[in-house]
């Protein structure tokens, strides 16, 4: 079952934090299409938050097309057709970690790493150049 968490210092309303975690979970492959989310009561008890807030988050997820209720069963996430499988995510994450370690060893500051990633992403020729390197 998907585990929510809360950052009480972020200044972001609780219900938006919950919505964002489902969105992110789908992007990163922690959540897959058709997976059931915990009930409002379960989330409220686990996080010790107001059940109305959890219900509000679930309504917002439905509005955003991230999840849908099934009568009498609960709320289920809606994955996108082009969702990348979790295994691929894991593999790519491991490769990226190795690359970031190499960048740090070469003396790049986090800001420089981010700038480099952005540049490569923005560059239309990025895949071919990366292959050639």
């Amino acid at each position: 079952m998907f585990a929510f968490r809360l950052d009480s210092r972020s200044g972001v309303p609780t219900y938006l934090q919950l919505v964002e975690q489902v969105r992110r979970g789908l992007l990163l492959g922690y959540l897959v299409d058709g997976e059931q989310l915990p009930t409002v009561r379960e989330v409220a008890a686990a996080l010790v938050v107001n059940p109305n807030t959890v219900a509000k988050a679930y309504r917002e997820m439905e509005r955003a097309g991230l999840a849908a209720p099934r009568a009498g069963q609960g709320t289920f996430v809606i994955g996108r057709a082009d969702q990348v499988p979790h295994a691929v995510h894991l593999k790519l994450a491991a490769q990226l970690r190795a690359w970031v370690r190499a960048a740090q060893a070469a003396g790049l500051a986090p800001e420089q790493v981010r700038a480099l990633v952005t540049t490569v992403l923005d560059d239309g020729q990025a895949p071919t150049r990366a292959d050639a390197a």
Binding site: V40, R41, A44, A45, V48, V49, N50, P51, N52
Partner: peptide
């Protein structure tokens, strides 16, 4: 505190 609040939110949910 946490246990008390947990009992409370469960009651509100029910």
């Amino acid at each position: 505190r946490r246990e008390f609040m947990k009992t409370l939110v469960e009651a509100v949910a029910e």
